[in-house]
């Protein structure tokens, strides 16, 4: 490299009045955002009892099936529980709105946009998004307006030419060493790299890191609500679980089936 010995001197004022302020502002905005999100979070909605019962009904049969190959309970008890569950699933006893009534119940699942519960979840996601987007846009505008084309810092290690577009955004010079970082690139480095620092000052599950929901803007909105976007059709799930129950009943064996022989053998009789 012929131009590697050509050195570039940066005014220390740039360090004091551009590099540090950008970093500081970004950290403070992250902390601020964390607390605003905490304020915006609405307490989890109270779920009616029937809905909890519906959600947890599947767990009952899963618990029964989990141990069916080495079941702790005797055959008669297993069979009665299994058949009771299967019967309840087919009759829809556990459904939130009571057993389905004939063919009229075959309607399509409700639209999530008209369901107020689902709407709440989406709104809270949107609010978080706004708290993230607005300050970041303001900071980016601020940097672009005042510090466009600034070179802020020189990295202490060499890099290949491929990093040029990453580190020198906004500075169109073909010959400058890759180690120099432009103001806009410094912003992006902070944007993606400050998460570790936030975790240090705010704890593990902070909401200060903006790059996380930046990458998937609507994933956060979908995950924020307790209900995923698509409401579950429990009737269908219950019907499917009946098959599983039958299958598990085929696998069933009692753990105490030949326990006498096992214990006697253990004690050398």
């Amino acid at each position: 490299m012929s131009n590697s010995n050509v050195s570039l001197y940066l005014d220390p004022q740039i360090r004091d009045w551009v590099l540090f302020p950008i970093t500081l502002v970004m950290i403070l905005v992250g902390v601020f955002r964390h607390y605003v999100v905490l304020l915006l979070q609405s307490p989890p909605k109270k779920v009616p009892r029937a809905a909890i019962r519906e959600q947890r009904a599947l767990v009952r049969s899963q618990i029964l099936r989990a141990t069916s190959a080495e079941s702790p309970i005797p055959p008669t008890y297993y069979k009665s529980i299994s058949q009771h569950l299967s019967q309840a699933f087919s009759n829809g006893t556990y459904l939130k709105d009571g057993p389905p009534k004939g063919d009229s119940e075959k309607s399509t699942p409700p639209n999530p946009l008209t369901d107020p519960a689902a709407m709440d979840g989406m709104m809270s996601g949107m609010k978080t998004q706004m708290v993230m987007m607005v300050p970041q846009m303001v900071i980016m505008g601020w940097i672009n307006f005042f510090f466009q084309g600034f070179v802020l810092i020189k990295l202490p290690f060499p890099l290949t030419l491929g990093f040029k577009s990453m580190l020198q955004r906004g500075v169109a010079t073909p010959d400058m060493d890759v180690r120099w970082v432009s103001s806009l690139s410094w912003y992006f480095l902070n944007f993606f790299g400050l998460n570790g620092l936030y975790r240090l000052i705010l704890g593990g599950d902070n909401s200060a890191d903006s790059s996380r929901d930046m990458s998937t803007p609507f994933a956060a909105a979908a995950m924020a609500g307790p209900q995923p976007g698509q409401p579950q059709d429990y009737n269908k799930l219950f019907k499917a679980e009946r098959d599983n129950l039958e299958f598990a009943e085929g696998l069933y064996s009692w753990v105490a089936k030949d326990v006498e022989d096992r214990v006697l053998r253990k004690y050398g009789r």
């Binding site: 618990i63 009665s80 529980i81």
Partner: peptide, 18 residues
């Protein structure tokens, strides 16, 4: 016994329930 069998299903590792 029926109630206990549910307890056994939920905690099959606990000899006290057996």
């Amino acid at each position: 016994l029926q109630s206990l069998s549910h307890a056994l299903l939920l905690a099959p590792q606990n000899p006290f329930y057996f």
